[in-house]
Write a protein that binds this DNA or RNA. Structure first.
Length: 435
RNA sequence: UCCUCGGUAGCUCAGCGGUAGAGCGGGUGGCUGUUAACCACUAGGUCGGGGGUUCGAAUCCCUCCCGGGGAGCCA
């Protein structure tokens, strides 16, 4: 038994493969069966003059996605997709497949998402999820090389980490518990224990967000580093993003090309990614307000940027842009106040290019116990469940920073696809939990 | 939650007051190099549910259900 991806090493030899029928074409006395085994596609040729009558007839009986076992001779042929094809000697139908729903034509998104378990077999989804695999490996490699320790946060938590956003509530032996929306509060103690740490885990958001940039369950990567200030935090985010973008471009060129066939302006996007380099742009919230004013977008100081404003800002730059030091009033309690200007906090959002929007949010954490207590009080958060978190400021408080990056948003940006729902094997969306 | 668009054959859609349509997919037949093959023939429908207007409703109105796109929130 061999896999399709290994066939170039078997040219001229007879091999046996198992796989599913991807597509068929026939023309009188010749039949073409495109075989799919997960590692690639292979054109199998049935010539009436070269196979026996029964085998030739069998080629007709195998429906789309039927499992077959095929034996034949590997041959190089320019006319075949992939460069090699199989001259078939025998075929065995192992398992039939009647009326496979995803035919090789266009389908709507509702139809496809309802059949996500089958949709994964198609070329585009295959390419996308291979890019996801490469992206995640690139992230791990980056942090491993820098001496970070992987720390897994809990997914079941007693309270909200950030207060405002809606949480999924679960019944925990009669007590209310919640699915985590961030591992950050658990990574800060880990940073005090190990210095440089990161986690990669699902985060859950119960907001009824219904846009191309939201999932209710997404994969959240969160580094947290001791003795790192805001400037260092942005440098870390910059180095990390450059590293993983280059990793995907290098290892998944074929997949990206396939994905780009149906995306307008894809060449320009790829060109931009290939030329991506340090430094990314850094502008303050105040600078961003000025920039928007120049684009005839009037906003009062203190107002948050919406998706439109973020798109306007990001389109002004040919590299991702850090927007830092946002107004304190709308910031989460754990962000450190700027000693230079107490009206803002030491945080940043990283906006991806071409209007993709925010893919990273990070900050230097408040390390002053009194200020942190005041922020909790000011935001009306219950203090008791956060006592353990306050301990970090009691026992050797330390300067530290971190950020969170969405795997799916990053992948959508790199691959140039519009909606993030296809960047995760089984997307969880508002009103969609099947399959 | 709000705004907006939609639900007609297995799929993608056209039809928008007067007998239910196309392409693809399925079936049958033809073709020895096809690339989402092509050509011919063929089967396939409570026009999302309910109510109303009308001589007559897929088409107009009301309502409910389901889905797409977007906003807010965020990664």
């Amino acid at each position: 038994m061999v896999w399709i991806e290994e066939l170039k090493e078997h040219v001229g030899k007879e091999v046996t493969l198992k796989g599913w029928v991807y597509n068929k074409r026939d023309s009188g006395k010749i039949r073409f069966v495109i075989l799919r085994d997960g590692t690639g596609l292979l054109q199998c040729v049935f010539a009436k003059s070269e196979v026996d009558e029964a085998t030739f007839e069998l080629a007709d009986l195998a429906n789309q996605e039927a499992l077959v076992k095929i034996t034949g001779t590997v041959r190089e042929d320019k006319r075949a997709p992939g460069g090699v094809e199989l001259s078939v000697r025998s075929l065995k139908l192992m398992a039939d497949s009647e009326n496979y729903p995803i035919t090789p034509k266009e389908h709507g998104i509702d139809f496809l998402l309802s059949r996500r378990h089958l949709w994964l077999r198609s070329r585009r989804q295959h390419a996308l999820l291979k890019c996801r695999d490469t992206l995640i490996r690139a992230f791990h490699e980056f942090f491993e090389k820098r001496g970070f320790i992987l720390i897994d946060p809990p997914m079941i938590t007693p309270t909200s980490c950030e207060g405002a956003t809606t949480l999924f509530e679960i019944d925990y032996f009669g007590e209310a518990a919640y699915l985590s929306q961030s591992g950050q509060l658990y990574m800060e103690p880990a940073a005090a224990a190990f210095g440089k740490v990161y986690c990669l885990a699902p985060s859950f958001r119960a907001e009824k967000s219904k846009t191309r940039r939201h999932l209710t369950e997404y994969w959240h990567l969160e580094p947290e580093v001791a003795f790192l200030d805001l400037a260092g935090d942005m440098e870390l985010a910059e180095d990390m993003l450059l590293c993983v973008v280059r990793g995907v471009l290098e290892h998944r060129a074929d997949e990206l090309k396939l994905l780009g066939e149906r995306i307008e302006g894809f060449d320009k996007h790829t060109e931009l990614l290939k030329n991506l380099d340090k430094p990314f742009y850094r502008i303050s919230y105040d600078d961003a307000l000025e920039l928007l004013k120049g684009k005839a977008v009037q906003m009062k100081w203190g107002e948050k940027f919406g998706a439109d404003e973020e798109a306007v800002i990001s389109r002004e730059f040919d590299r991702p842009v850090f927007v830092h030091r946002y107004p304190k009033a709308s910031a989460p309690f754990y962000m450190k106040e700027d000693p230079v200007n107490p009206k803002v906090v030491l945080n940043f959002d990283l906006l991806a290019t071409e209007g993709y929007g925010e893919i990273i949010g990070g900050s230097q954490r408040e390390d002053d116990l009194a200020k942190l207590e005041a922020a909790i009080e000011r935001q009306g958060l219950p203090r008791e469940p956060l006592e353990w978190y306050l301990d970090l400021r009691r026992y050797g408080t330390f300067e530290h920073s971190g950020f969170g990056i969405g795997i799916e948003r990053t992948l959508a940006w790199i691959t140039g696809i519009h909606h993030i729902r296809e960047t995760i094997p089984y997307p969880r969306l508002i009103d969609r939990i099947y399959p």
